[in-house]
């Protein structure tokens, strides 16, 4: 992977345009299907949130996973490239967005159904921890350092932080939580109606595509920023050389 974006034409290409259209179309479909879901006996209108909340949470897991995978690829000597470090950073930043939205939409769903905006339940607490870990990871990336030093310590931090994702995923099975179990793994007796499963799966697709589109653009922004730093460094070195010649 080359970090240089020689074209310098912003962050859009035909591929990202296609990805963007697919993301927008699937998001629009998710909203249309989700908002037209019928009221349920247990939750009334609030069950319509099933179209967005699980998909957003899934996208936050994907973001964490991509950050960890890109970090591992940077650490592996054969695949080491600055691009993997930039991708890890881009994915983590988008991950903050989706993790924060997971907490927000979860609280909005919890208030009318549980009677509380927040409870220190294992799933909610671990989701909040994920957000803190991602913010900490991004803060670590901003500590001034050589790009290789930054990449190494960020990669190690990401690989440690990602361990919370499987724990969070299985939290609803390992501990007694207020949060419900996995919607797609309920026993047939408790299985969701087909319309709700369809809306939820559509939400998974839409949020994954939105995540991908945002991450590709954020990655390219990071490449352009890196090129600017290189250009500034080259200009500064050139200025010093000229000073040395004229002195």
């Amino acid at each position: 992977m080359n970090t240089r974006n020689t074209g310098r034409r912003g962050t859009g290409t035909a591929v990202t345009m296609t990805l963007g259209i697919a993301a927008l179309a699937s998001l629009a479909a998710t909203y249309a299907v989700g908002l037209s879901l019928p009221r349920t006996y247990e939750q009334g209108d609030y069950s319509k949130l099933i179209a967005i909340h699980p998909g957003i949470a899934w996208a936050s897991y994907v973001a964490f996973g991509v950050t960890a995978l890109a970090s591992a690829l940077w650490l592996w000597p054969r695949t080491r490239s600055l691009a993997w470090d930039l991708l890890a950073g881009a994915s983590a930043e988008v991950g903050v967005l989706f993790t924060a939205l997971t907490l927000i939409t979860g609280s909005i769903w919890g208030r009318p159904t549980w009677g509380a905006w927040w409870v220190w339940d294992a799933r909610l607490t671990l989701s909040a921890l994920e957000l803190m870990l991602l913010l900490g990871y991004l803060a670590l990336r901003r500590v001034p350092a050589d790009s290789e030093v930054r990449a190494r310590r960020s990669a190690l931090a990401a690989l440690l932080a990602v361990l919370v994702v499987p724990v969070n995923h299985y939290a609803v099975q390992w501990w007694r939580t207020l949060h419900q179990g996995g919607s797609l793994s309920l026993t047939p007796k408790d299985a969701l109606d087909g319309k709700f499963i369809f809306a939820m799966v559509l939400g998974f697709l839409a949020m994954t595509l939105v995540y991908a589109w945002l991450t590709v653009h954020r990655f390219r922004v990071a490449q352009l920023e890196e090129d600017l730093v290189d250009d500034d460094l080259d200009a500064a070195l050139e200025a010093r050389r000229r000073e040395a010649v004229t002195a």
Binding site: R8, R9, G10, T11, G12, L27, Y31, G34, L35, D45, Y46, K48, L49, I52, H53, I56, V94, L97, A100, L101, I104, T105, I108, W109, R111, P112, V210, W213, L214, H217, R218, R220, V221, L224, E225, L228
Partner: peptide, 30 residues
């Protein structure tokens, strides 16, 4: 429906705001 609209609305607003910032940032670095 207030909570439902809030959930859908905040999600759309946050995603749109970030997408707008990323695209703007990319263009400003041309």
């Amino acid at each position: 429906m207030t909570y439902v609209w809030a959930g859908y609305g905040i999600t759309l607003a946050v995603l749109a705001a970030y997408a707008g910032w990323v695209v703007h940032r990319g263009r400003s670095l041309k």
